[in-house]
């Protein structure tokens, strides 16, 4: 059946790891919208949640970097980071190996993605799950798009990957939800940490909310890096969700630059009309 839920969120580790240092009002508004999205996800009664993430050299490194990878394990573990540093306790997270395998097989007809039967989630997945499925009771199928080590997959390819993923999910009987997590502009873990290009973010979000494929995929990596930092490469995860929900517009629940979280914190949902 068509996707039952789709959205995008930020995942900066500061959101949970340095929460006490943020402006209280902004932080609470962000958390409230994270939990709102989580409540709506729960109402959609998903059998699995696909998380399209941009991990940070936790499982995939430059010795053998896949442009796209999908988890295919019975369970995952995370966070890989120090529990206290991230503010999230380490645990097992259920997967769905059988359904992952089926989706991988179908994706391989058009995309040469990698699969992984062992995957330690980093903050890129753990921070979203901490709010969206705090009981860790929804099986997760992780997807990684390399957004860290260039060369990177083209943006149009990320859109088309999402479109193919959405098409495959629609033909399956399971109730499948999808959440993309990344960007938008940020300079994570560098001396410029805390810098956020709000106008660039808002323009990108306009394109995302209107699911404007041409505008979403028109950025070059060079201009993204210069205007939006290395973290800007992670727009691929948002774009993949746009591809999976082509023809649908979105609703912005929350956007605010929160420098100590090192990112323009974003929570948005796709209004599904698939």
């Amino acid at each position: 059946m068509p996707l039952v839920f789709a959205g995008v969120v930020s995942h900066g580790p500061g959101i949970t790891g340095r929460y006490e240092r943020a402006d209280k009002e902004l932080r609470e508004a962000l958390y409230e919208n994270f939990y709102r999205l989580g409540a709506e996800l729960k109402e959609a009664r998903p059998d699995v949640l696909i998380v399209v993430a941009a991990e940070h050299f936790a499982n995939f490194f430059m010795d053998n970097m896949p442009a796209y990878a999908m988890g295919m394990a019975e369970y995952y573990e995370g966070p890989i980071e120090d529990e206290q540093w991230l503010g999230i306790k380490r645990r097992k997270i259920p997967g769905n190996a059988q359904l992952s395998g089926l989706i991988v097989e179908k994706l391989l007809q058009r995309f040469d993605l990698a699969y992984s039967q062992e995957w330690q989630f980093d903050h890129g997945i753990m921070v979203p799950l901490n709010f969206l499925t705090p009981d860790y009771d929804v099986p997760i199928i992780p997807v990684n798009i390399n957004c860290q080590g260039p060369p990177l997959t083209p943006l149009a390819r990320a859109y088309d990957f999402g479109r193919e993923l959405g098409r495959i999910c629609a033909a399956l009987p399971e109730r499948i939800a999808i959440v993309g997590t990344g960007g938008i502009s940020h300079w994570p873990a560098t001396p410029d940490s805390g810098k956020i290009n709000e106008s660039w973010d808002r323009e990108f979000l306009e394109h995302w909310l209107s699911n404007d494929r041409a505008a979403l995929t028109a950025y070059s990596d060079e201009e993204t890096y210069l205007a939006a930092g290395q973290g800007g490469f992670e727009i691929r995860t948002f774009i993949a969700v746009s591809g999976a929900t082509e023809g649908c517009t979105g609703e912005l629940y929350f956007y605010a630059p929160i420098p100590i979280f090192a990112v323009g914190c974003t929570v948005a949902r796709v209004k599904l009309t698939l």
Binding site: Q148, G149, A189, T190
Partner: peptide, 17 residues
Amino acid sequence: LYVMGVNGQLLMHYAAL
């Protein structure tokens, strides 16, 4: 290490260690 070009996503954990 940062000036040498080490990516912050790796370096911040080494610093935390």
